[in-house]
Design a protein around this nucleic acid. Structure first.
Lengths: 148, 148
DNA sequence: AGCGATTAAATCGCGAGCGATATAAATATC
DNA sequence: GATATTTATATCGCTCGCGATTTAATCGCT
């Protein structure tokens, strides 16, 4: 039973642990804003380019409606965005920021600088890491999507 | 509003996406075994060293009893392990593999080689990645735990 | 010995993510 | 133009993870 590696030594575990650590940092940084880390990512996309469909958001975040719909409903309940079916194509739902949602963008820079400080790595190191992680992700996804 | 980076360009997002991709790979690889990715990690620790307390497992996996207890109960319900309070210290609960739990270790190598293939990176690249991720994790955790 | 403080698990309520399924609208086919 | 197919969201039930709280056992101090 040559288990040379403890599970905690595996690459998958270090990735997972780093992800959890990020979540923790964001939890603190976002507590004042009153949104969660995934919610903040959605808002970030909308700040860049408002009026998107659920599917467009999902494609960028790699989330489907089963995850996004409840999340968007929570943001809607907070009064940060509106969900309205597109009259041109009633299948799709268009997501638009409210004034309150747009106003929240002002607090984003503080959050980002707080996270930047927490990362504590040089730009080169971050780039190396990002590049490797994207390669890893592509490889992993290719293996689960044999559909050429 | 200088949002130079879309949220999906952020390091935190690439980490999260890689984590999700790993989860997907494990979901497929473990479907035959009938356990989830976090459950597999727990079993991996027990295969290495049986008879641990909930707290010991949690410390290694960075999980607390609020996450571990239900997970362990599910593994217990599957007949893979037993949970028994330690007579020496009735506060702690000792986790022991059953014969079925030990037997499952035979299938682990296949899972690991499947994941290894999916990673599709050289050993050096994996080491670089692991090292950087651990540095990242340490830095992130240090920032949320000001308690010196 | 007795009593407060600490420690270990468990419990509760929540958000996130996914597989599977359902529903409704648009498109394709005949 | 009616019907089958595809597409976009939504819904359901589950596991995981966390913050907060609870319960019970041990430890420490006098």
């Amino acid at each position: 039973m040559a288990h040379t590696h403890a599970p905690t030594e595996l690459l998958c575990f270090t990735v997972h642990a780093a992800d959890q650590a990020f979540a923790q940092v964001y939890r603190h940084a976002l507590s004042e804003m009153g949104v969660t880390y995934p919610q903040f990512l959605v808002l970030g996309l909308l700040w860049q380019c408002d009026d998107r469909t659920v599917g467009e958001l999902g494609q960028m975040l790699r989330l489907q409606s089963n995850t996004l719909t409840p999340l968007l409903k929570r943001l809607e309940a907070m009064g940060l965005l509106s969900r309205r079916r597109d009259p041109q194509d009633e299948r799709t739902v268009r997501i638009r920021l409210t004034d309150a949602g747009r106003a929240l963008a002002d607090k984003a820079p503080d959050v980002m600088s707080c996270v930047s400080r927490a990362i504590g790595m040089t730009a080169e190191e971050q780039d190396t890491l990002t590049t490797l992680l994207r390669r890893l992700q592509d490889s992993l996804r290719a293996s689960t999507t044999p559909a050429a």
